[in-house]
């Protein structure tokens, strides 16, 4: 681990870029998925169409998506925006379905009770349905977080720098310390994001802990 001791500043910088490239898409993806998922639930005809489209997007391999982004966005191939947009696409592809299913799983009688008490439209969504769907949405977000962190490292092959650089450089120059550090840093980052999501979900759903946390 002498390699890490000598290079910890670089590692930290790269980890921050990595966090940015994997984390921003998580937040943006979630914000985009909420209305889309809600729409898929609200208009049940749109559900299969939305699920099929997002499923298709999710099928496209990440390296391919990274390479195609400049053609679609008109950006340069080295532009980190390509990676952020591609990762957002993946996050949305994964979360729309999760959000729709999470909202659909809210029992009918609860929705009806809320409506009967005068909850309506957006207030019912924000006050009743969304909180109850939090555990399901959080589960989807955790999967997205772990996969995002892994995928982002591939962007090093296009010259967008983050922790993946350690992997590529460590391999090219056969520096085991660097390679292993890169892997461990990625895993740590994934676990950290996971922890944040789990904690956030717990804070948002205090009632589940009272019942003995069946989430």
């Amino acid at each position: 681990m002498t390699w890490l001791a000598d290079n910890w500043r670089t590692v930290l910088d790269l980890a921050l870029s990595h966090l940015y490239l994997a984390g921003i898409p998580l937040v943006v993806g979630l914000l985009v998925s909420l209305p889309l998922g809600w729409a898929a639930k609200r208009w049940s005809r749109s559900y299969p169409a939305l699920i099929t489209t997002t499923g298709l997007l999710y099928t496209i391999p990440s390296l391919a998506l990274f390479v195609l982004m400049p053609g679609v966005l008109g950006t340069k191939i080295l532009d980190p925006v390509n990676v952020v947009v591609a990762m957002t696409v993946y996050t949305v592809a994964l979360l729309v379905r999760t959000v729709a299913d999470g909202l659909r799983a809210v029992p009918d009688h609860i929705e009806q009770a809320a409506t009967a008490m005068g909850y309506r439209g957006l207030r019912r969504l924000l006050g009743v349905e969304l909180p109850l769907a939090v555990p399901v949405i959080a589960a989807g977000l955790r999967v997205a977080a772990v996969s995002n962190v892994s995928i982002v490292s591939v962007a090093s092959l296009l010259g967008v720098s983050q922790l993946g650089d350690l992997l590529v450089d460590g391999y090219n120059r056969v520096i085991w310390g660097e390679l292993v550090t890169g892997i461990l840093a990625c895993v740590t980052l994934a676990l950290l994001l996971d922890l944040v999501i789990v904690t956030g979900s717990r804070v948002l759903t205090p009632w589940l802990r009272v019942q003995g946390g069946r989430a």
């Binding site: 591939v154 092959l157 922790l163 992997l167 590529v168 391999y171 990625c186």
Partner: peptide, 15 residues
């Protein structure tokens, strides 16, 4: 184990 980056796994096994 899915938290391990695929690129890293590829390099380690190959090296």
């Amino acid at each position: 184990a899915r938290a391990v980056p695929t690129l890293g796994l590829l390099f380690v096994v190959s090296l």
